[in-house]
Simulated scan of single mutants.
Amino acid sequence: MQTLLEQLQKLALLAAAATAGPWVREGDMACAEVLGPPTGKFAMQYPVCSSIDDEDAAFIVAVRNVLTPENLTLLVAGQAALAAAAPQWVSVAERLPEAEEGYTEFSTWVLAYTMAGRQIEASYYFKGPLKGWHTPTGKADVTHWMPLPTARATMEGASHA
Rank of each mutant, 00 (worst) to 15 (best):
V110E: 10
Q2F: 01
L72T: 10
L11A: 14
P37W: 05
G132M: 03
A12H: 14
S123L: 04
A17F: 01
M146F: 01
A116K: 13
C31M: 09
L72Y: 10
A16L: 07
A80L: 06
G157V: 04
A58W: 00
Y103Q: 11
Y124F: 15
S123Y: 07
A18C: 03
I120N: 05
A93W: 11
G138S: 05
E26L: 11
V92H: 10
P149A: 07
L82H: 09
A161T: 02
Y46G: 00
Q79S: 14
K139Y: 07
T137Q: 15
G36T: 02
S51A: 14
L82T: 08
G128M: 02
P38G: 01
L4P: 00
A93L: 12
Q9I: 01
E156Q: 08
N71H: 13
R95C: 12
L130Q: 11
R152N: 08
T19H: 06
A30K: 05
L72C: 10
A58G: 09
D141E: 12
R95N: 13
D56C: 04
R25I: 08
T135L: 06
L82V: 10
V142R: 01
T68R: 09
K139V: 03
V63C: 03
M1A: 02
D28C: 03
L13V: 07
G138Y: 03
E94G: 06
V48Y: 05
A30N: 07
W23R: 09
Q45T: 11
T135G: 06
P149C: 04
Y125S: 07
T73E: 14
A83T: 11
R118C: 04
I120E: 14
M1R: 01
T39P: 00
P69S: 04
G40D: 02
A99K: 11
A116P: 02
A32E: 06
E70Q: 15
I120T: 15
A158H: 04
T150A: 13
A77N: 13
L4A: 05
N65H: 02
D56Y: 02
R118N: 15
E101D: 10
V92E: 08
T68P: 09
L148S: 00
E156H: 09
T143C: 04
E98N: 11
P136A: 07
Q45S: 12
L8W: 03
A43P: 00
Q79N: 10
T73W: 00
A20E: 15
T154E: 11
L67F: 13
W145F: 02
Q9S: 14
V76C: 10
G128P: 03
L74Y: 11
